[in-house]
Amino acid sequence: MKFIHTSDWHIGRQFHNVSLLEDQRHVLQQVVAYIKAEEVDALVIAGDIYDRAVPPASAVELLDEIMQTVCIDLGVPIILIPGNHDSAERVGFAAKLMKASGLHIMGNLSDIYEPVVLDAKGCSVAFYGIPYCEPLQVKDNFNQDVKSYDAAHTFLVNEIKDVMSDKHVNVLLSHCFIDGASESDSERPLQIGGADRVSYEPCLDFAYVALGHLHSPQYKGAEHIRYSGSLMKYSFSEQHQKKGVTLVEVNQSGLVAQTHLPLRPLRDMRILEGELDTLLTQGQVDPHYEDYLLVRLTDKHAILDPMSKLRDVYPNVLHLEKPGMLDTKATELQRASLKHSEFDMFQDFYTQIAGENMSDEQKKLVSGLIDRLTQ
């Protein structure tokens, strides 16, 4: 049996006030293409389907479109759990009715005892799901004195292991933060101070563990305990990550193979660094000029309206940093504040911005203005 493991779609996300919906549709269509090409038997989504608990209508429409294609048009079942960005109640609406269409939503903690069992190609696989939950929810639902994320997650995993059967190949879905795994800037912390970390050891007994929450494709503890990573880059800290989905193949004896299938973004997310003139020249011939960019200018002198100039060649510059200029200004202003008068400070500022000295008439005008303000 083959299934695709994916997570952290974050449909409806905005980045620097720019909607990523078109970019998300582009990569989701590639996921559908992989489902067809690899002839998979299921699609597994390990949480954070939406970017927020109450998603915009356009995000709901896109998810509906993808699920219609996968479940109805292709006849491939989807198994999903909600993540910390999702509202479990909203994602789980009409879950029992949707099972008949092949959409299996494991959004309730009581669902941990009831796996989705799929039989295909001589293999029987039981998919167990742990939706994102906090320790207090586990304490209230199971009357257990658990105070940490690790204790809560370990309890839930052990509950599943107590009921799972050797007749099936057992797969676990969980939306959590495995201790020691690599994080990115775009992930919302589950808890401040690292209290959200959980241990991987309780998960070792499963044939495969499909994790969600962390955006970098990786495994932790053992190769079969794996994050597929997010569909696309959601922060500039992820610029070097290779986004994709994981193709998992199992037989009745257990895991056979796991393969990273790459996803090509409509617009990549990159960091460019250099002097303004160099970047402007480079942009004239850059085939990927429409990528989302963070630009770090290394010019030491002041530049008037650099963002506008950059967007003439790179229309999707989303953030601009000028570390060299900021450091120089900070140093000069600090020295001026200690040694110079208000007039001297303004004169230095004018020279830096205009690139020329003030005229006698300008000096007289500024001096008179400062005198009136300080009287």
Rank of each mutant, 00 (worst) to 15 (best):
R264V: 13
V256A: 10
R264H: 11
R197G: 13
D268Q: 04
L21F: 10
A53V: 12
Q375N: 08
S124K: 06
V138D: 03
S228H: 12
I160F: 07
I49E: 00
T259H: 09
R335T: 15
S19R: 04
G12W: 13
H301E: 10
E39W: 00
F343S: 12
D41T: 07
A354D: 07
A207C: 14
Q282E: 11
D344T: 02
E275L: 01
S101D: 08
F155H: 10
D268M: 06
H215V: 06
K329I: 11
L310H: 05
H240R: 06
V54M: 02
V157Y: 12
H175S: 08
A336C: 14
S148G: 07
K220V: 07
N357P: 03
A181R: 04
R296T: 12
Q352W: 09
G355C: 09
Y219A: 09
S7Y: 01
I225L: 04
L279N: 05
P262L: 14
N251A: 05
V125D: 00
Q137H: 07
Y289Q: 14
I271H: 00
K233E: 08
I370L: 09
Y234P: 03
T281A: 15
D166W: 02
S216H: 08
D344M: 06
L293E: 10
L272D: 00
L261G: 02
